[in-house]
Each structure stands twice: as C-alpha cells, then as structure tokens.
C-alpha cells in the first residue's frame, strides 16, 4: 500500500515538475550497486581458471558505489528524494542490496540475471530507468572486480542522457547541478541539467561521511520492498576466458640505507628505469 501511494505521489510530482523550478525537486534517484568481493579478499580462481573462486569470500557493496549511495542519502535528507538501489545479478546479491536499504535507500530492484557483460547490464539498467521515470542515476566509476568502468557511460549513451565520469562533486538543487570531474592532471567544473548519469568516486562524499548501517536501519531494511524483475532480452558482446594471477615477484633485493648510490646504480644498470 505504502508503495502504491508513494509511487502515485512521485508521478504527480514529476508531472508538475516544470512548475517547480524555484523549489526543491522531489527527485527519483537510482543508485546502481555492484556486489563485489571485499577489498581485503584474497583473489583465487577455480581449478580450471574459468571463474572467480567465491569460496570463503565476503561480498560487499562496491566501494565506489558506496560514495554514490551516501550522496543520494544526502539528497534525500536535504531536499527530498526517493532512492532506489539496483543490482543486476542472481539471488546471492540480495544481502548486498539489503545493506544498501539499511544505509538509507527506500526500495530495491534486482534484475534476475547473471551479469554477462557490461553491455548486457547497461541494457538491463536502461530498461529499469525508462520504466521507472528516474531523474538521476548514480553509479560507481568502476567495480573493483571486473574494473571495466563501462556500465555508467553505456547507460548514459543508451538513454541519451549527459554523462559525468570520475565525478568528485555534485551540488545543486532544482534542475541544474554543478559538478566536478577528475581529468588528467586536474579537475574540470561543469554544469548539467537533469536527467543525467554520474559515475562517482571518493569526493562525491568523503570517506568519513560514508553511512554505515545502524541497527535501526538494518531492522527497517528487512521490510523495505525488494522487487525482482526479469531481464530484458539482450546479447552480451564479450566473453570472459581464462583467468590468471600475476607472475610471482622475484625476491626483494635489500639495499643498505647508507648506500643510496648503490640503489641508483641498480635502478640504472639492472632495472633500467632511470
């Protein structure tokens, strides 16, 4: 019931959006959540090197996504917004979505499919965005498992929405936002109007500001809606093959702290890096 009422409320608001330029907008924000191995996890592959070995690995919200989620919670607290968190994955990702709900999202959507590749995932998210009438999508710059950095930009291109990658600041109210993105050797300030896609990282909020689920949040998260959707029909464009680990380093060569000339000689003659 709560769900039906709030979504009717959003629709009413979005229809009247054009009359509310000077006021805070009640936004519908979609935050994309990747379910990834914990940053301290030891990475191993299955015996035939065809897949990541999940044995004994704890999964967490992708760290880059956490900054975006907290930023969305700020939007909600400052100016009113509803936050939907989304994951494309199998049922095993649900604890991660529940954690996002405990941090402050209002509802969750899981598109029930193996995330075959970024193109597949971006198409799933695009379908959810089109159906849900969202104003803003926040994702992480990349996921710390596949390190592709592809989904947010593909999503923006599919939706024909502006895209801000490596975003470190997003401030604004109403339709227009001032954003800052990292570029080679500096920063770029820019403006964009809703709707747009942000691929965020630290800076969107600071590390110390990251929200951690508290007991009340965890209890509330249990009863928040988590909708499971069927995937839309899309073919993947890439196929993963054999995994491998980096070659082990040869033993470290210790150099006496008093003999930096020797280190310089080694860097020049042996490593050939100077």
């Amino acid at each position: 019931m709560h769900n039906i009422l709030t979504s009717a409320f959003f629709r009413l608001f979005s229809r009247h959006r054009q009359y509310h330029f000077s006021e805070y907008l009640f936004m519908k924000v979609l935050v994309c959540i990747s379910h990834v191995p914990d940053t301290t996890a030891k990475i191993n592959f299955t015996a035939d090197n065809s897949a990541f070995d999940k044995n004994g690995v704890q999964f967490v919200i992708n760290p880059y996504d956490e900054f975006g989620l907290t930023r969305a919670v700020w939007l909600k607290e400052k100016q009113g917004a509803s936050i939907t968190v989304l994951n494309v994955g199998t049922a095993e990702t649900e604890p991660t979505l529940r954690k996002a709900l405990a941090i402050g999202a209002d509802n969750a959507i899981r598109v029930d499919a193996e995330a075959k590749d970024a193109f597949f995932v971006a198409n799933q998210i695009a379908a959810v965005v089109k159906e849900g009438d969202y104003d803003l999508v926040i994702a992480g710059r990349e996921s710390i498992d596949y390190n592709g950095g592809q989904v947010p930009g593909m999503l923006a291109a599919l939706l024909k929405w502006p895209f801000i990658n490596a975003c470190v600041s997003m401030e604004g109210e109403g339709e227009t936002y001032n954003l800052v993105r990292e570029i080679d050797g500096g920063k770029e300030k820019l403006q964009a109007s809703l709707p747009f896609v942000v691929a965020g990282q630290k800076g969107l909020v600071e590390e110390k500001d990251l929200r951690i689920p508290n007991m009340r949040g965890i209890m509330q998260a249990r009863s928040k809606p988590l909708e499971v959707k069927s995937p839309v029909d899309t073919e993947a464009k890439t196929q993963t093959g054999v995994y491998s680990k980096p070659a082990p380093k040869s033993a470290v060569k210790m150099v006496d702290a008093e003999n930096m000339a020797e280190l310089v000689r080694l860097l020049h003659e042996e490593a050939k890096v100077i």
């Binding site: 592959f45 710390i144 196929q239 993963t240 093959g241 491998s244």
Partner: peptide, 12 residues
Amino acid sequence: VYSSKGFNILSS
C-alpha cells in the same frame, strides 16, 4: 581484473 590481483582473457 580484481584490481590487478588477476588477469582475464576477454574475447569478442
């Protein structure tokens, strides 16, 4: 992949 803790052969 896995933040340089591994590699994968990706094909298309």
